Amino acid sequence: MADRLKGKVAVVTGAGNGIGQGVAALFRQEGATVIGVDRQGADRDCDLLNEAAVKALFAAIGQEHGRIDILVNAAAFAIFDWIETLTYADWKATLAGELDIVFLPTQAAWPWLKASGRASVINFASANARHALEGSPALAHCAGKGGVLAMTRQLAMEGAPHGIRANTIAPGFIRTAATQRHLDHDPALKDRVLAKNMLKLLGEPGDIGWAAVWLGSDEARYVTAADIPIDAGATGW
């Protein structure tokens, strides 16, 4: 099939690279009208931590299309460090880059998601919202992704009367330009990840993208407040 999202208007943040870029490509392949958003390299450039800019962006998208059927909040930013050396500034920057960057677009998109009547919000938690990976200095990232998990359950409750579904995908280690930098910095990281995975392989953006296609489609009309782990079984034992 190449029309699972035919006729749907989708906004994908973080579409300039990594998982967001992969999701945007699959959505277009499946027939959606996609507006990719990122700081650069996307259909619309926007600083997603600038409240006024985000409100203006979504007002323009809503006025142009009349509704938003799917919102994918794939944009994220995190600083990885240990509790003993993590600065308060880096802690706050990571929480903004994990939580505010989901809150601001979702709030700005909400009237247009309501206008759809059958909208889907897709957020990204993480395997790190449920477990700690030995040797990974991910304190702020774990806190941020745990917050996304809780936030999305609340969005599912608030959105249900308006036909808005809200779910999270919780990726394990996905190979992207950003994660490749971590692998290059710490060559032993791959072995630690694979030791935790039931399936002894690293994920690719497409592994996440197909789950997003399903959650955005009418096939998932009965699915809300769910968290879907795509992590090679890492959180299953």
Rank of each mutant, 00 (worst) to 15 (best):
A2Y: 04
A2M: 11
K8N: 07
V12C: 04
G14M: 05
G14A: 10
N17A: 15
G20W: 01
G20E: 11
G22V: 04
G22Y: 01
A24F: 04
R28D: 00
Q29I: 01
A32P: 01
A32L: 08
D38V: 02
D38W: 00
Q40I: 00
D45S: 15
D45T: 04
L49V: 11
L49C: 12
E51D: 13
V54H: 02
K55Q: 15
L57V: 03
A60E: 15
A60G: 08
E64Q: 14
G66L: 05
G66T: 07
I68N: 10
I70L: 12
L71Q: 05
A74H: 04
A74G: 11
A75V: 10
A75Y: 01
I79E: 11
I79L: 04
T87H: 13
D90M: 04
K92M: 06
A96P: 01
G97A: 08
V102S: 05
V102W: 08
F103V: 09
F103Q: 12
F103W: 13
T106N: 10
Q107F: 03
A108K: 04
P111F: 02
W112G: 11
L113W: 02
K114Q: 15
K114S: 09
S116W: 00
G117P: 05
G117E: 12
R118G: 14
A119K: 06
A119S: 13
N123P: 06
A125I: 05
S126C: 06
A127L: 14
N128E: 13
N128G: 03
A129E: 08
R130M: 03
A132Q: 06
L133V: 14
S136D: 12
S136L: 12
L139S: 14
C142P: 00
A143D: 05
G144T: 08
V148C: 04
M151D: 04
M151Y: 12
T152M: 00
R153Q: 14
R153S: 10
L155E: 05
L155S: 03
A156T: 12
P161S: 09
P161D: 05
G163Q: 11
N167G: 06
T168R: 01
I169P: 05
I174G: 09
I174F: 03
Q180V: 00
R181V: 02
D184E: 14
D184T: 14
P187V: 15
A188S: 15
D191A: 15
D191C: 00
L194Y: 12
L194Q: 12
A195F: 02
A195S: 10
A195R: 10
A195T: 15
K196L: 14
K196R: 13
N197D: 10
K200D: 03
L202K: 09
E204C: 01
P205F: 01
I208M: 14
G209M: 06
W210K: 15
G216Q: 06
G216N: 11
S217Q: 06
S217M: 05
D218N: 12
A220K: 02
Y222D: 05
I228E: 00
I228G: 01
D231E: 14
G233T: 12
G236S: 15
G236K: 08
W237A: 12
